Amino acid sequence: MKRYDLITPEGTRDLLFEECAAVRAVEERLQKVFRAKGYSEVITPGLEFYDVFNMKSRYFPQETMYKLVDNKARLMVVRPDSTMPIARMTATRLREQTLPLRLCYSQSVYRNKPSMRGRSDEIRQTGIELIGSASGRAELEVLSNALEVLSSFETEGFRLEIGHIGFFKALLSKLGCDSDTAENIRGLIEVKNYPALNDLLESIGDNEVTRALKQLPRLFGGEEVFAEAAAIYSDPETDAVLADLRSTYEKAVSLGYNGMITIDLGLVNRMDYYTGTVIKGYIEGCGDAVLSGGRYDKLLSEFGYDVPATGFAVNVDAVARAELKRVNFKPVPADVLVFGTDGYEAAAVAHSRKLISEGLTAETAVFDNIDEVRSYAAKKGIRRIDIVSEKITSENL
């Protein structure tokens, strides 16, 4: 029988030294931004009951979740998403809190995607949820935070894409197709697979709606997208969506990030989850989106608490990998290596504490003779050795 005790499961990996430093630096930077805006941190369990994610809209297909049973044979999952557990927690433990709620988190999610080789099944996320406001001001706050976050990363450039799921949903409702066909259309638009999308829509028929859906993946760019979208399809519902999106876009541009913000009406990911504005953020050096989110006004109602919400999550691992290419996160050697001669081991520990209280980093040597201590210090790049005996002497290397 083959043993797997020396490798990690597919889709996971160990993080070492500078990778850990990069991940922590990104998390701390994001949390600092969020705390300054009044967001309070929450942590949800790594294990949740399957029912939390098996809602009417089925936001997460069961085959993408890691499943197990507890000692009562109840089906559980390893957390595949942070927003739905936070929705559960809000609908129960935070139900009496004054709205709006501003919540933030840093935790891992786990998604089983065997078909996507090279992708991580374990993803470290940091994000925010603004719960209890349907106002455009809430939209603007989330966009402002997303732009501030993207601009804080140690990369050469970034881009925030803004869309609105309502435009696609309005077209789809007029097409009258079954749910499987609708999901196929959505998936092809999301990945911008023009040939396959054209073939599928032609099999449905040639009409104003199918022609508009064919053009949807191409509707991305600047302010000109609004006129282009109105030209391919216009009725009171889609006109209202475009007006809402234009207002959001203009307010976002007014924040001072003109040139970094684009419109993309082909943002149709998780259409049963999002209900309004959707966003994706990209940075230099990373091909996939590192930030995603949007408005999800119906999610909490599935937990019995009908309040609107919006938010986003950042893929911390992806940002950290991109920043490692540009920023030096290599571990810094200790300032001092402290060695206690025989009988003075405890005194060496006390001396290390004193150095640390003075703002230095100090290692306590665990070797039995000074030659080994000097050899270790030279290999590690530690420039000073403090030798503790009846008195304390220092050697500079």
Rank of each mutant, 00 (worst) to 15 (best):
Val33Cys: 03
Pro333Ala: 07
Asp199Gln: 13
Ile283Lys: 02
Thr98Leu: 11
Arg117Leu: 12
Val314Ala: 04
Lys174Ile: 14
Glu96Ser: 04
Lys2Glu: 09
Tyr194Asn: 12
Glu345Trp: 11
Leu188Ser: 06
Ala252Asn: 12
Arg24His: 10
Glu395Val: 04
Glu161Gly: 03
Glu19Trp: 06
Phe49Leu: 12
Asn71Phe: 14
Pro80Arg: 02
Tyr59Leu: 05
Ile356Tyr: 09
Asp14Lys: 03
Val241Cys: 08
Gly285Ser: 00
Pro333Cys: 08
Val69Cys: 12
Gln31Asn: 13
Asp244His: 14
Leu255Met: 13
Arg79Phe: 04
Ile162Phe: 06
Ile86Asp: 03
Asn396His: 08
Ser106Tyr: 05
Gly166Gln: 01
Thr310Pro: 00
Gly163Asn: 06
Val316Lys: 07
Glu10Ala: 15
Ile131Gln: 05
Leu47Phe: 15
Ser133Phe: 03
Leu397Pro: 04
Asp386Pro: 01
Glu41Pro: 15
Glu358Gln: 15
Ala309Val: 02
Ala231Ser: 15
Leu99His: 09
Met65Phe: 05
Asp264Leu: 10
Val33Asn: 11
Val77Phe: 08
Gly163Lys: 13
Ser120Leu: 15
Thr44Leu: 00
Asn193Gly: 04
Met84Thr: 07
Tyr344Cys: 03
Leu150Asn: 10
Leu213Trp: 06
Val307His: 05
Asp264Cys: 13
Ile385Lys: 04
Ile189Phe: 03
Gly163Arg: 06
Glu208Leu: 09
Gly285Leu: 06
Val241His: 07
Ser133Lys: 09
Lys192Ser: 09
Tyr282Pro: 07
Ile123Glu: 09
Ile165Val: 11
Leu201Asn: 01
Val191Thr: 11
Gly294Glu: 00
Cys177Pro: 01
Pro9Trp: 12
Ile204Phe: 04
Leu255Val: 05
Arg117His: 06
Ala170Lys: 10
Met1Leu: 10
Thr277Ile: 13
Ala25Ser: 13
Ile370Lys: 11
Leu6Ala: 12
Arg79Asp: 07
Val314Ser: 00
Phe329Ala: 01
Gly205Val: 00
Gly285Met: 10
Tyr59Ser: 00
Ile165Glu: 00
Tyr39Glu: 07
Asp342Pro: 15
Asn184Phe: 10
Tyr257Lys: 07
Leu171His: 07
Ile43Gln: 14
Met76Gln: 12
Gly11Pro: 09
Leu150Glu: 10
Gly166Met: 00
Asp180Leu: 14
Gly381Lys: 10
Arg270Leu: 15
Ile7Cys: 08
Ser254Phe: 01
